[in-house]
Simulated scan of single mutants.
Amino acid sequence: MGGKVVRELREHGVPVRALVHHDDDRAAALRAISGVEVVVGDLTRERTWWRPWRDAAEPTSG
């Protein structure tokens, strides 16, 4: 999800869990938004993202 989508969701009160590939400045910017949880992972390596997403209601890609 891009930062714009995350901000829109938060403006509507939707909690967000964002999967990022690198823990960089963009990830830090997402963490700075109240109500956003950032998870670092690689979609090609399931073990890096499966556990944090297992309780997510409906993961969304953007």
Score class of each variant (00 low, 15 high):
Ser34Ala: 15
Gly2Leu: 03
Leu19Thr: 02
Leu9Tyr: 02
Lys4Thr: 06
Val39Ser: 07
Val39Lys: 04
Ser61His: 11
Ala56Pro: 02
Ser61Ile: 03
Pro15Ile: 02
Lys4Gly: 14
Ala29Arg: 11
Ala29Tyr: 06
Glu58Met: 10
Glu8Tyr: 04
Asp24Tyr: 12
Pro15Met: 06
Pro15Gly: 14
Val40His: 10
Glu58Ile: 00
Pro59His: 07
Asp23Ser: 06
Val36Phe: 03
Asp25His: 13
Glu11Asn: 09
Val38Ala: 13
Met1Ser: 13
Asp24Pro: 02
Glu46Cys: 09
Val36Met: 06
Ala57Ile: 01
Asp24Val: 06
Ile33Ser: 13
Val40Gln: 12
Arg17Asn: 04
Arg17Pro: 01
Ala56Asn: 02
Arg47Val: 12
Val39Gly: 12
Arg31Asn: 15
Pro15Asp: 06
Lys4Val: 03
Val39Ile: 01
Val20Gly: 10
Ala32Thr: 00
Arg10Ser: 07
Ser34Tyr: 00
Val5His: 05
Thr60Gln: 11
Gly62Phe: 07
Ala29Gln: 13
Met1Val: 10
Arg51Leu: 07
Ile33Phe: 04
Ile33Pro: 08
Gly13Phe: 05
Ala18Gly: 04
Val14Ile: 00
Asp55Met: 04
Ala28Met: 11
Met1Pro: 11
Gly35Ile: 01
Val40Glu: 15
Leu9Gly: 11
Thr48Arg: 07
Trp53Gly: 14
Val40Phe: 01
Leu43Phe: 10
Thr44Leu: 11
Gly2Phe: 09
Val6His: 03
Arg47His: 15
Arg45Thr: 08
Ser61Ala: 15
Glu58Val: 02
Ala18Arg: 02
Gly35Glu: 06
Leu43Ser: 13
Ala27Arg: 09
Pro15Leu: 07
Ala27Pro: 03
Val5Leu: 12
Ala18Met: 00
Glu8Asn: 07
